[in-house]
Design a protein around this nucleic acid. Sequence first.
DNA 1: GCATGTCAAGTTGTG
DNA 2: CACAACTTGACATGC
Length: 303
Amino acid sequence: MRFGLCCLFVKEPVSFRTTTAKVLLALPRERQLTKVSELCVTNARNLLLALATVRRLGIGAFRIMSPLFPRMTHPEVGYRLEDLPDGALILHLLEEARTFARRHDIRLSFHPDQFVVLSSPHSAVVGSSIRELAYQGMLAEAVGAEVINIHGGGVYGDKGQALERLAAVFPDLPESVRSRLTLENDDVSYTVRDLLPICERLSLPLVYDVHHHRCNPDGLSVEEATDLAGETWQAVGREEYCHLSSPRAGWGGGNPKPHADYIDPADLPECWRGREMTVDVEAKAKELAVVRLMSELGRGAGP
DNA sequence: GCATGTCAAGTTGTG
DNA sequence: CACAACTTGACATGC
């Protein structure tokens, strides 16, 4: 079992920078490009630093934050890598990251945020989602990331129809995205049971989030869901990806959805132990939570 | 200096 | 109806 870190660090000195469309819009085009170019160089360097740090801590996977290249797909201030003064350097740094990750067997993934909704009935929403996915596909190709993971999106009163819209849009996605796309069960709408049929039909692996499953159950046991999701990964010859978090407010009363700082080892499913899989740890204390969980499991594993 | 509100984007469920 | 839940940090503004 390998554990993964999501996007950020709290103690380790790795920090990614960003900017807003509002700030960029106040600048002439040329200064927009020099500004984002600087941010992209910084972030590409920090990605390398992140991978070196992850490796030092014994973490085996890393989720790359979506705005690594800030506002790249914004309709007004968006840009291409080749527009940037340091475009070649940036590409070179991404290649270094790819080489490092491959050499040290660090699995890389992307998780586009809530605005990417392929099941939406609004063509403008789907259009901007495709643009954002294409950007992440380009990035994923450059750094050798294996997974671009999204949710089913909205329901609009009819899950079946919504998923049909998603399936209909799938062929329009660039190959860089289609070959990496995965679907994840969420905590309000789409369960593992909802997603399995479309995953099988489109040959998409299913990322199983056990916390979402516990918040939004579907009659499957954790073990059944783990195995069924696992089959979608076996079908494409890849290692299963799962997500783990603990509820900030605990499981008795209160809203269990917000994530806690750390993982309660009791929330790690028994059937995951010793299984060949990648477990992304979604916890506010970031690398500290991953390191603590690994050490607790190491201690508890003995007789 | 420091504390605070705002920032491209969608959708759902709660108070 | 407004707001939180999905990730923060950068920046402008006001004390």
